[in-house]
Design a protein around this nucleic acid. Structure first.
Lengths: 226, 226, 226, 226
DNA sequence: TATGAATGAGGGTTCATTCAT
DNA sequence: TATGAATGAACCCTCATTCAT
């Protein structure tokens, strides 16, 4: 941590030649950790290289500039999260059940990957920076996924799809609610992923109108899975 | 837009002497604009001073450091927004109507004060920074306001208050949904505040469960106002 | 102390028109205090004006730039000190007695005017700054005074004056010893001025006592090296 | 000398890559020179970097902040001087001879290392600054060394040690006399180190010579006043 | 390949000094 | 006369980025 460490520690032996893929993973892991702890601007390339145990020139050689490095983080983590969520969806299931599974998968992922999630969420509002493209793209993918679920649900229940242009903003709102709950979760870490997911279902599926009538949403009404 | 505009412009003449209060407002106005455009870190005091049409030393003399200046922005804008929303609440009204009014007031405010809102929203996820205290405080105030409404609604409808510890996370989720919708709105500026507010009511009051049944929320069910 | 004091204090009533001499004294008093506490560079004109209770433009109008203000401090305090010391000298007295009185007067002055002395001593080594002239001049005056005493003593005791060029460096050394003792005194404030003066006499007179007898120390008495 | 020399000089080519230890010495050398010429506050890191022929970031990387850099200078030069003086002391020698050697070594060092000495002496009176600790420590070391010599001398001559608490202030006075003589020397550079050392011995030893014989000076021998 | 060494550029902050009332 | 308001000019420090070994 200090600039001048006591001499005598075994200096990190000149890093072995490793295949490029491994190196890139090491760097990305470190970068995700640092960016998630500090945020984009306060994070320094020095710290990334320190955490990664790899010298800065290597980082530039492999992943490019700080911006590109950050974009790569966003992309990798977005993909991981989308896969975690997408993996539980099953087209044969009831839409409500699908939404529940997706929501539960989201909170499970967040619970197990705080860094991944924070690196995405912390920069949510950023615009103008060149990596905004990556952020927007990730968000779009998430919203698209949810939109599909919602539309499918609507059509199944008989009303047909939502009116033109209604699905997307609602999906965005749902995303926002999920993020806010995840943020709240950080300060209440004792809650289980399932409890968090249930809260989001209560809001999004039942609505306050039902809640104030005492009608809450319960997973037990549904066939559960792990 | 660029930091250094073409040279050759006549340098701004020594700013007229204005009373301190006026200058402080000018500075805060400029700061809100710059911070909302760039975000905290990329914003430079130079740009703030340029936009304010005043030299940097005055900013430091009146508002203190960059951090303090930013905190002052957050505080002022939070207060403005809370007053705009709190001003439409009337304890004699039906809770549903109150929520509707609050939500409508939120989107109306955001529509009319993009800068104010962005300077708050852009930094939403920031933690650890010294101004995080101000941000957290503002958020807490907002959530507290909503929580009161929800609890009042619940007790009026007969169920009594929500179970202990349920109100706050739901209020946070509602806030998040509102922010996400406001963000979406930036890319769809043709929507009216009322349309946005209706979307949030549809999600939060009705829930998807009703929506997919074709039961949507309409302000017409309620006595409207302006 | 703080930039923004609570309002409500009675603001210093627009300073009454005072004769120039009074104003200058107020300013110099404040300046001596501030310079002695902080040293030349760290002292700020803002603090001087605050302590003086007079606005900065007045200071510039009356005493000129920071440098000139400091020079004025040096001059005034040097003069005060020289007068305090010179006042006890009496040509009719024994030189040893004269030296004792002078030394005692020095420590008495320092004990009663810490600020005055520090503002002089703190900058002792400064060269190159424009006020160095004032500093050097003051020092020269002090050394000259002592040199006279020493030479008079020497001639009275029979040896005639010190050899050409010997008096001045010895006077300088005596001055340095006095300053160092005064510095030491700051950390041992319980000592009386008389005790301090005696210490300096022990070192200087008992030494000089032999010198004026013609008994000088010679390295030749010792096996030399180099 | 001026901060900005004539333009048009070819900019210094990227400094050759040198091992860290070498660069640190270069930087310290430059810093000592600049600090001794200007004093702590007026010295700028820019000038240090210019004189060192290296860019500012390297200075910060290797030696830390301006304060730390200055402290490092003080420490290195104090150590050099103490070693130069301490190196000539020999416990088997007569104390008087030891003092003579020490004093001569002091003036020899000062004569050969004007910068080193000035960087120490110039800041002598500084208090409160964070590097004051280093300065005080150096001075303490010097005074301690002299005190030991004096006490040893006194005990050898038969009187036993000086009365409790007398040694230190006398050692301080001797130090001050030495510094003042060295300062005077700057304006009379033709003098030899030996001549300077002899002057200090005349003042100090002939004085101490009597003191250690038990012959102290007492004001009671004189008609007192006040 | 891998890295210690090196820097251009810019940001936040302060201060002596002066205008305009 | 007296001052609140205003600023040009530096200064310390950091960081993303690259060179030379």
């Amino acid at each position: 941590m200090t600039k001048k460490d006591v001499a005598g520690e075994t200096p990190p032996p000149r890093a072995k030649r490793l295949p490029r893929a491994v190196r890139e993973r090491q760097i990305l892991d470190a970068a995700v950790r640092v960016f998630s702890e500090r945020g984009y601007h306060p994070a320094s390339m020095d710290e990334v290289s320190e955490v990664a145990g790899i010298s800065k020139p290597m980082i530039y050689a492999y992943l490019g500039s700080k911006e590109e490095l950050f974009a790569a983080c966003i992309q990798r983590e977005t993909t991981r999260m989308m896969e975690a969520i997408g993996g539980v969806v099953d087209v044969n299931l009831d839409p409500e059940e699908q939404l529940w599974r997706g929501v539960l998968a989201f909170f499970t992922f967040v619970g197990e990957n705080r860094d991944s999630w924070q690196v995405l969420h912390r920069q949510a509002g950023t615009q103008g920076a060149p990596f905004a493209a990556e952020l927007a793209e990730g968000r779009r993918r998430a919203i698209a996924l949810i939109s599909v679920l919602l539309d499918r649900a609507a059509s199944k229940e008989g009303v047909g799809a939502f009116a033109e242009g209604q699905t997307e903003p609602l999906a965005a709102a749902l995303t926002g609610a999920g993020e806010a709950l995840a943020e709240w979760w950080l300060e209440h870490p004792d809650e289980s992923p399932k409890a968090m997911a249930r809260r989001l279902m209560n809001l999004s599926w039942m609505g306050f109108g039902n809640l104030v009538d005492g009608k809450a949403w319960h997973p037990e009404k549904q066939p559960e899975k792990a």
